[in-house]
Simulated assay, not measured.
Amino acid sequence: MTGTLEDRLTELEVRLAFVDDTMNVLNDTVAAHEQQLLEMRLAMDRLRSELVAMRGSLTQDARDEPPPPHY
């Protein structure tokens, strides 16, 4: 093995610092994705509710509507 024990320890500390930084960045990314996912789920629920409401208004029988003016 090359280098002194102190050099090797310094190298390990530097690598650990990079690993810690990478973990923090990944943690922030996961947290941001979780927030976006929550927002998307809420939007999907709102859209689903609107769709159900629209379906209710569209299920009226076409025979109940007056004929178009060209008849």
Rank of each mutant, 00 (worst) to 15 (best):
M1S: 15
M1Q: 14
T2L: 09
T2N: 10
G3A: 14
L5P: 06
L5T: 03
D7A: 09
D7T: 02
R8N: 11
R8E: 08
R8G: 08
R8H: 09
L9G: 06
E11Y: 01
E11A: 15
E11D: 11
E11R: 00
E11I: 01
E11V: 02
E11C: 04
L12M: 15
E13H: 01
V14N: 15
V14K: 15
R15S: 12
R15F: 07
R15C: 08
R15I: 04
L16W: 01
L16M: 14
A17V: 01
F18Q: 12
F18K: 10
V19E: 15
V19H: 11
D20G: 07
D20W: 02
D21A: 12
T22H: 13
T22L: 14
T22S: 14
M23Q: 13
N24F: 05
V25A: 09
V25H: 09
L26S: 08
L26M: 10
A31G: 06
A31N: 08
A32W: 02
A32G: 08
H33A: 12
H33S: 10
H33F: 06
E34Q: 11
Q35S: 09
Q35K: 05
Q36N: 14
L37N: 13
L37S: 15
L37A: 15
L37E: 12
L38S: 08
L38E: 12
L38T: 02
E39R: 00
E39M: 09
M40S: 12
M40Y: 11
M40F: 07
M40H: 04
R41G: 10
R41D: 13
A43C: 04
M44T: 10
M44D: 09
D45H: 07
D45I: 00
R46G: 11
R46C: 11
L47K: 05
L47C: 14
R48E: 12
R48I: 08
R48M: 09
E50N: 04
L51K: 12
V52Y: 06
A53H: 05
A53Q: 15
A53D: 15
M54Q: 15
M54V: 01
M54C: 11
M54N: 03
M54T: 03
G56M: 03
G56I: 00
G56S: 09
G56K: 01
G56T: 04
G56Q: 03
G56F: 02
S57C: 07
S57F: 03
S57V: 05
L58T: 13
L58G: 09
T59E: 10
T59Q: 10
T59K: 05
T59G: 08
Q60I: 01
D61Y: 02
D61K: 00
A62V: 05
A62I: 00
R63P: 05
R63I: 06
D64E: 14
D64H: 00
E65F: 03
P67I: 00
P67R: 00
P68T: 01
P68S: 11
P69Q: 04
H70W: 08
Y71Q: 02
Y71M: 06
